[in-house]
Design a protein around this nucleic acid. Structure first.
Length: 371
DNA sequence: CACTCGTGGCT
DNA sequence: TAGCCAAGAGT
């Protein structure tokens, strides 16, 4: 059967017989060599959901311990819906892209309130839930509910681009429907979830981005870029911008009650996580004494009077996707504990610090100061 | 649509 | 090392 979509047909002209043979080869390999992973032990939609959100832009070996802990702390979707923000963010601490976990709770509350705790089973309905996009909706629908819809993630883009020599730039939004159409035509009707996971396992084994081994792939006979030695020409993607350098003072202020931490704003980087207050060095005037400018700005923000001094250590450097932070620590010690009613922050002792969700960059600062 | 949003591993 | 990459989604 030819592809109804003309654009997909340009790249996929396999016969039904060939498609079935491809599915058979891929699934045979998956049954023998597929990875055993914690979230593959059953088809519980909540398990699939949590693992898929964690796996967004994140490697499997990073996710495994977070997944295990998350299932202990929030065993069911109702536990997730009812969790406190602190406990929720703490379970995600260090995993990055923190909006994922807040969106996950919104979705859990939608399941609870709009679906009476029962998961919708179609990809279209699943994609209505906050934080669930086309990939994750397809993954849950196929793995948990057996719906034959292709889950197009980075692996699927790379695998299909190489197998079929698809020269579309996968970073362009217009390319997704083409890959979706092709994946939907290739997917096994009998085992759609296993098919999707097999494509991903293939993309992390023989058809990796770097150092692929297409000659050892279980579907090498179906691999059109391997046939002419152009594997590394696919997929086509445009380059990312490099992170911008930003220079901050990180203010480490100690009172008898503990160290001063600021809860970051609800939007933007590291939203609602706790950090030392930062001062952008670009906002300071180099021709004036820096420490007195820092004290003035700190007083304006917090209402607290403090005298800062530099500490002899290398700046803490931390790279995000779009920013590279260079943090120089300034220390101040207070003999009493000022009130913080004007400032979204708290004095945290070591116990409270351990309970508060901190981004990795703050954990680096902690290591400098508290060890 | 282009941009934002983290982190760790690898070369 | 600096850059690239990894089971994306929201705006």
């Amino acid at each position: 059967m030819a592809l109804a979509d003309d654009f997909g047909a340009k790249y996929l002209n396999w016969s039904d017989t060939k498609i079935l043979a491809f599915q058979k080869a891929l699934l045979k390999w998956y049954d023998l060599e597929g990875r055993r992973l914690p979230w593959r032990s059953d088809h519980d939609p909540y398990h699939i959901f949590v693992s898929e959100i964690m796996l967004q832009q994140t490697q499997v070996q990073t996710v495994i311990p977070y997944y295990q802990n998350f299932m202990t702390v929030f065993p069911t979707v109702l536990d997730l819906a009812e969790a406190s923000e602190t406990k929720l963010l703490k379970a995600w601490e260090g995993l990055g892209y923190y909006s994922r976990v807040r969106n996950m709770q919104k979705a859990a509350r939608q399941i609870k309130n709009e679906y009476s705790g029962n998961w919708p089973t179609s990809a279209v309905q699943l994609q209505e839930l906050t934080g669930i996009g086309p990939y994750t909706a397809a993954a849950i629908a196929s793995i948990a509910f057996g719906q034959p819809v292709a889950a197009i993630d980075g692996n699927a883009f790379r695998v299909f681009a190489r197998l079929l020599k698809i020269d579309l730039d996968i970073t362009k939004r217009q390319s997704r429907p083409v890959f979706q159409t092709i994946g939907d035509h290739l997917i096994s009707q009998e085992r759609p979830g296993d098919f999707n996971q097999a494509v991903m396992d293939l993309g992390t084994s023989y058809l990796t981005a770097k150092n692929p081994e297409p000659e050892n792939s279980p579907v090498r006979e179906f691999d059109e870029s391997f046939a002419d030695g152009t594997t590394l020409d696919y997929p086509v993607k445009t380059l990312k911008a490099k992170p911008v350098d930003l220079y901050y003072y990180a203010l480490a202020v100690q009172s008898p009650a503990g160290w001063l931490f600021e809860q970051r704003p609800a939007k933007g980087m590291l939203a609602r996580l706790w950090m030392f207050p930062l001062i952008d060095r670009a906002d300071l005037d180099d021709s004036q004494p820096l420490m007195s400018q820092v004290a003035t700005r700190f007083k304006e923000e917090t209402g607290v009077t403090a005298e800062f001094r530099e500490v002899q250590m290398k700046p803490v450097v931390h790279t995000f996707t779009h920013q590279k932070w260079h943090l120089e620590i300034l220390v101040a010690e207070l003999s009493s504990t000022p009130d913080l009613s004007l400032f979204p922050g708290q004095w945290l002792d070591s116990t409270m610090r351990a309970e508060s969700p901190l981004p990795t960059v703050q954990l680096k600062l902690n290591r400098q100061l508290f060890t």
